[in-house]
Write a protein that binds this DNA or RNA. Structure first.
Length: 196
DNA sequence: CCGGCGATTGTCT
DNA sequence: GACAATCGCCGGC
């Protein structure tokens, strides 16, 4: 069972714990399949690199809270904060599997679609800037659930360079599933779904 | 105080 | 493949 203590380390060391985990807001549910780690003073590409500001303050807070920022003035991107208080770190959610319980496919199963890109993730989950800093463990609307209520990824993930950055482009801190729908069997997906 | 630019994406060619 | 949309941050003056 994923809890706050799993996220107490550096973002790049704990990011894979989020693969296969479930993040939800109100009635929207996402199985996380694509993540990027952002550090603190050790990571020039991180919002936290130059210290705490009004925008990135939650990155320096306790692990397991949400960090929401406005990207290109348009998109609301969500992160899971990691590491100890006072140390900046967060894991950007870049993509996942969206479960739409109300919509059934031609075989009567809940429709599962791929969400790709941090802007689309924020949009799907209805993230707002006012959600910045909310606790993902024990909160009402936002929740993060791993292992036991989520899918087991094991070693079936890939590592690569982070997308869209101009600094620290050689940090292999992206952790993702190449083909998320094919990574899990239908049995696994339905199991995870029934645990929601 | 001003201006360039970004952890992006939808649209048009 | 190129580019506009859109706004807060941060560096520079």
């Amino acid at each position: 069972m994923l809890d706050r203590s799993y996220l107490a380390g550096p973002a790049n060391e704990v990011a894979t714990y989020l693969l296969g985990a479930v993040i939800r807001n109100s009635n929207q549910t996402l199985i996380i399949t694509d993540t990027e780690a952002y550090g603190g003073f050790d990571d020039p590409a991180s919002h936290a690199f130059k210290g705490a500001t009004n925008r990135n303050r939650s990155m320096f807070g306790q692990a397991g809270v949400l960090y929401v920022y406005l990207s290109y003035g348009i998109h609301r991107c969500i992160n899971v904060v990691t590491d100890s208080e006072g140390i900046g770190g967060a894991i950007l959610i870049r993509g996942g599997l969206a479960i739409t319980k109300n919509e059934l496919d031609s075989l009567g199963r809940p429709r599962i679609s791929v969400i790709s890109g941090p802007g689309r993730v924020g949009k799907y989950l209805g993230a707002e800037l006012s959600d910045d800093g909310v606790d993902l463990f024990g909160g009402l609307n936002w929740q993060l659930r791993g292992n036991g209520s989520s899918l087991s990824v094991g070693s079936r993930f890939s590592t690569g360079m982070r997308i869209g950055i101009s600094k620290a482009t050689d940090f292999p801190w992206r952790y993702y599933l190449e083909d998320p729908l094919d990574t899990f069997s239908e049995q696994e997906l339905l199991f995870a779904l029934n645990r929601q």
